[in-house]
């Protein structure tokens, strides 16, 4: 937990400490797991990978566990259904529950009653919608906080969804490795596009945020050149963007890469996705209440 000296309280730029450090780390894990679970389900449903959808379901359950670990009173979590009208956390909780419920039924039908194609397709579409909702709401929960200027950007939900999709596609690649060659090539083509989009969105987000307020500019400075620079450049840039893009471009020229190469890319993307959530949450800073010279 980050300690604040009493005489420094809100008279300097103050890092948010409630959603990072100690129990707060679990919210970063929950956001990460929600993103890749949603991304994986959408990708697995498109490529019709039952194992992929099952792993997405497992990851969503893990997200729920991580959420519970974040709460001081997890046994009261049923109350989190109460305010979907105004609270993104409440909306997210409902999205997660609906996604898990719909996917459970769909997986049971797909495994044991595969001839019920109409029901399976309907459930896949519905679960896909909630997979997307589960993935994007984490971004909205963060971007809704107008008090933290670096978060208060419309790009954050897009960034989180793209990152989740990139991680989800990477996991699907690992799952389908050694399977249908044509599907693997198609998957790699999609990953290439998503990775490039992810890199562009991060760039636009940082550039755009710099101009939104002095607090946001301070936060971006910390991310790219301050105390968070190692996390950003090594975690987000190197693992999340550079290594996967290099691998992806390599496979473009040499065809489907070796399993070692692909595993490296997959692990790298997952580390990058986790680092992104931590970097964004850690970068959250409040504007001082007294003037700063």
């Amino acid at each position: 937990m980050i300690q604040i000296k009493p005489y420094d309280f809100m008279v300097k730029y103050q890092q948010q400490k409630d959603w990072i450090g100690g129990r707060g780390n679990f919210i970063a894990f929950a956001f990460f797991l929600g993103g890749i679970s949603g991304g994986l389900y959408m990708a697995a449903a498109y490529f019709d990978s039952l194992l992929g959808m099952f792993v997405a379901w497992l990851l969503s359950l893990l997200m729920g566990v991580s959420y519970m670990a974040h709460l001081s009173h997890p046994f009261r979590s049923w109350r989190m259904f109460m305010k979907p009208g105004t609270s993104w956390i409440a909306r997210g909780f409902i999205f997660i529950m609906l996604f898990i419920g719909l996917t459970t039924i769909q997986l049971i039908l797909s495994q044991w009653v595969p001839e019920a194609t109409a029901a399976i397709t309907t459930l896949k579409v519905l679960a896909g919608i909630f997979a997307f909702a589960q993935s994007i709401y984490t971004g909205f929960a963060v971007s809704y906080v107008s008090a933290i200027k670096v978060w208060n950007s419309a790009i954050v939900p897009i960034l989180f969804v793209t990152c989740g999709l990139s991680g989800g596609l990477a996991i699907l690649l690992a799952i389908t490795m050694g399977g249908d060659h044509a599907q693997l090539v198609a998957l790699e083509n999609v990953i290439r596009v998503v990775l490039i989009a992810f890199a562009i969105i991060i760039g636009v987000y940082l550039w755009n945020t710099t101009y939104s307020s002095t607090a946001a500019k301070e936060a971006v400075k910390r991310l790219v050149g301050g105390s968070l620079a190692p996390l950003f450049w090594i975690g987000v840039f190197l693992f999340g963007i550079a290594i996967p893009i290099v691998m992806s471009v390599t496979t473009y020229f040499v065809g489907v890469g070796s399993s070692g190469l692909l595993i490296t890319a997959v692990v790298s993307e997952i580390i990058g996705g986790l680092a992104l959530r931590f970097a964004i949450l850690k970068a959250g800073m409040y504007t001082p209440l007294l003037p700063v010279d």
């Binding site: 009261r76 109350r79 989190m80 109460m82 305010k83 105004t86 609270s87 993104w88 956390i89 409440a90 909780f93 809704y144 906080v145």
Partner: peptide, 8 residues
């Protein structure tokens, strides 16, 4: 008040 998910 708006962000509280439980109405606490």
């Amino acid at each position: 008040v708006k962000v509280c998910p439980t109405g606490a």
